[in-house]
Computed example of a mutant assay.
Amino acid sequence: MTVDAHHHVWEPSVRSQDWITGPRLQSLRREFTMDDLLPEARAAGGCRTVLVQTVTISEETPELLALAAAHDLIAGVAGCWTDLTRPGLADELARLREQPGGQFLKGVRHQVQGEPDPAWLLRTDVQRSLAAVADAGLVYDLAVQPHQLPACIRAAASLPRLTFVLDHAGKPPVASGRLESWARDVRALAALPNTVCEPPASGLVTEAAPAIWSVDDLRPYTDVVLDAFGPGRLMFGSDWPVCTLAASYGDVLAAARALTAGPDATGRGEVFGATATRVYGL
């Protein structure tokens, strides 16, 4: 069974999604619920999923954990948001685990991509909190831009007992076709054994030229991460419903399968299920 290691849900009437701005994101300005995702998952042949945060508001996490408790499709919640600059994270994580559905908590995420300081991950207070994430046996998801990858490398090197998951391959500049500096930094990150990457296809379709992407546009970037991380440290994520800006759920899954046609059956099994199951403890 496929594991989709990265998707979202939101209801604007319940929780404001203040990041959905501008005409390009117009189609996302509506609710996307588990009822919307279920038929997509069934059409894909059945899967388990990992639900990921969307806003930097701590109140969202109990809502996501309750959803996981209510839906068999959700195997874990990764990327819950909590303020990494404040002390007392260990107590906060313990409190979350006592919430209904707390057993589904698998990781923490902050939208580092929106931080003006490219070295935000290296702040003393953030490093203290990342150590607490490691102590709790959780994973840290990296939501970053390419220029922030050097800080990711240093952060992962400084905390070898914490597993870092690079969301969307660090958002490479697919639309421009540039590759060199991103590939260099991704390879340096992958050289650290406590790192995992989350293509193929996840997030890449929305970094490509809108509405005209092809599998061949994504292949140079997927080839880099396949070579750097290997199938055992790669996992499929749809990034639904954000992916619908450029592709349907089925299109993203088909692209991911085409881009991983090289590895043998065992390797593909790792990308489409075993890696996420192991990394997130599903």
Score class of each variant (00 low, 15 high):
Ile212Ser: 02
Asp227Leu: 10
Ala247Ser: 06
Gln17Trp: 12
Thr21Glu: 13
Val9Gln: 11
Phe272Pro: 02
Ala68Leu: 03
Ala265Asp: 14
Asp227Glu: 15
Gly101Phe: 03
Glu63Ser: 14
Val186Phe: 09
Gln53Met: 11
Thr206Val: 15
Ala119His: 05
Thr244Ile: 08
Tyr221Ser: 05
Cys80His: 14
Ala156Val: 01
Leu259Trp: 11
Thr21Gln: 15
Val196Cys: 12
Pro193Gln: 10
Ser181His: 00
Ala190Cys: 10
Ala156Cys: 03
Leu28Phe: 04
Leu25His: 14
Phe32Asn: 07
Ser27Lys: 12
Tyr280Gly: 04
Asp35Gln: 12
Pro87Gln: 07
Leu189Trp: 05
Gly88Ala: 11
Asp251His: 09
Ala131Phe: 01
Thr49Phe: 02
Pro87Trp: 04
Asp83Thr: 11
Leu37Ala: 09
Arg30Tyr: 06
Leu65Glu: 01
Leu105Gly: 06
Arg109Leu: 05
Arg97Thr: 10
Leu38Gln: 14
Arg109Ser: 05
Ala155Leu: 02
Val196Asp: 00
Thr2Asn: 13
Ala136Trp: 08
Val186Ile: 11
Asp36Asn: 07
Ala211Phe: 02
Ala175Glu: 10
Val252Asn: 07
Trp213Glu: 00
Thr85Cys: 13
Gln103Leu: 09
Val52Gly: 01
Cys243Ser: 13
His71Leu: 03
Ala261Glu: 14
Ile57Gly: 13
Glu60His: 07
Ser176Asn: 01
Leu28Asn: 03
Ser58Asp: 15
Ala70Lys: 09
Gly262Arg: 15
Trp213Pro: 03
Ile74Asn: 03
Leu138Trp: 02
Arg268Cys: 10
Thr61Cys: 05
Pro87Asp: 13
Cys197Glu: 01
Ser129Phe: 05
Leu159His: 13
Val242His: 00
Val77Trp: 02
Leu73His: 01
Ala5Leu: 03
